[in-house]
Simulated scan of single mutants.
Amino acid sequence: MDKELLRVVIILIGMLVMIGMLLWHFFKSLRERRDADDYFDDTEYSDSLVDEFEVDEDDDEMDIFPIPDAVDGDGLLDDESINPVPRASAKADVVKEQPKTALPALIEFSLVARADEGFNGEDLFEAFERVGLEYGSVKVFERIDKNRLVDFAVASMIDPGTFPDTGLEDFYCPGIVFYMQPREVDKPLAVFDDFIETIDTLAVELDGVVWDNQRQPLTAETIAQFRQMLAR
C-alpha cells in the first residue's frame, strides 16, 4: 500500500475516534442533566425546603445584633473624632461589686483529733469559749457578729453533728467541722480570715490536724487560693 494512502487512512480513523468520543460525552451529559431534572421534579420536599429558607423581613436574624447609630460622614472629620479626648482614669469608672453568686456556696474545713479517743466534750466547750464561739439553739457552736448574725459554725463529726449540753465529760468525737457560707455574710474575706484564725487556735489548744475541703492537710497554698477567690 502506498505510504501516502496509508497516512490518509490513519488520519481518517483518528478523526472518527475523536468524533465518537465527543458524541459519547454529549449524550452522557444530556442523560445526567435529564436525571437531575427528574429528581427535583419528583421530590416531595423541594417546595418545603424553599419555604423553609425564605426570610421574613420582620424576622431577619440580623436584627438580633444591635446596629450602632448612623454617623454623619462630616462628623468623622471633627477634631474630636480624629483626636478623641482621653479618659480621665480607669479608677474613675464605676467598679462593679462581685455578685454573691460568684462566691463559693460553702467552705468546709475540719479539725481531726490526734488522740485515738478524740476530743472530749469538756475540752471542746472550754476551747470554744476562749475563742469566742457561742453555743446556739441548734446545738452547734457559732461565730456571732455585732448584728447577732452567724458568720460561721462548728459542728461535731458524729451524726447528727450536734454537741450535747449535758454529760460533757462522757462525750467524745473524732473531730469537728467548720462551716462558712460566703454568700450569706457581708464581708466574706474578713470572715474567712477569722475562720482560719479560729481553726488554727483550736488546732493548737485541742491538739488536732486541720483538713481542707478535700480531706487533705490544709496548706498555706489552699488558704491563699480561697482568699483570692473571696477577694475578687
Rank of each mutant, 00 (worst) to 15 (best):
M1S: 14
E4S: 11
L5Q: 12
L5Y: 01
L5G: 04
L6I: 11
V8Y: 05
V9D: 07
L12M: 06
L12I: 09
I13N: 05
I19N: 06
H25G: 05
R31G: 09
D35S: 15
D37I: 11
D41K: 10
Y45T: 15
E54K: 15
V55N: 03
E57P: 02
D58C: 05
D58W: 04
D60L: 05
D63L: 14
I64L: 12
F65H: 12
P66K: 06
I67E: 13
D72R: 07
D72G: 06
D72E: 10
G73D: 15
G73H: 12
G75M: 10
L76Y: 11
D79H: 07
D79R: 09
D79C: 03
D79A: 09
E80R: 13
S81V: 07
V85H: 09
S89F: 03
K91E: 13
A92R: 15
A92P: 01
E97F: 04
Q98C: 08
Q98Y: 10
Q98G: 01
K100S: 06
T101S: 14
A102W: 05
A105H: 10
E108F: 05
S110M: 11
S110D: 02
S110T: 08
L111T: 00
L111N: 01
V112C: 00
A113K: 01
A115R: 07
G118P: 06
F119A: 02
F119S: 00
D123Q: 12
L124V: 06
F125G: 02
F125C: 06
E126R: 13
E126Q: 08
F128T: 01
E129T: 12
G132L: 06
G132T: 04
F141W: 02
E142W: 14
N147I: 07
R148E: 15
R148S: 15
A153Y: 07
P160T: 12
G161V: 05
T162P: 08
P164M: 09
D165G: 07
E169I: 09
E169H: 08
P174R: 04
P174S: 07
G175I: 01
G175Q: 02
F178D: 02
M180G: 02
M180F: 03
P182M: 04
R183Y: 02
E184K: 13
V185Q: 01
V185N: 03
K187C: 08
L189M: 05
A190F: 06
A190T: 10
F192Q: 00
D194L: 10
D194Q: 11
F195L: 07
F195V: 02
I196R: 02
E197Y: 04
D200F: 12
T201C: 04
L202Q: 00
V204M: 14
V204K: 12
E205C: 04
L206C: 05
D207I: 12
D212R: 05
Q214K: 14
Q216L: 15
L218Y: 03
T219R: 06
A220W: 03
E221F: 10
T222G: 10
A224N: 11
Q225G: 04
R227W: 03
Q228S: 15
M229W: 11
M229T: 15
A231N: 15
R232V: 14
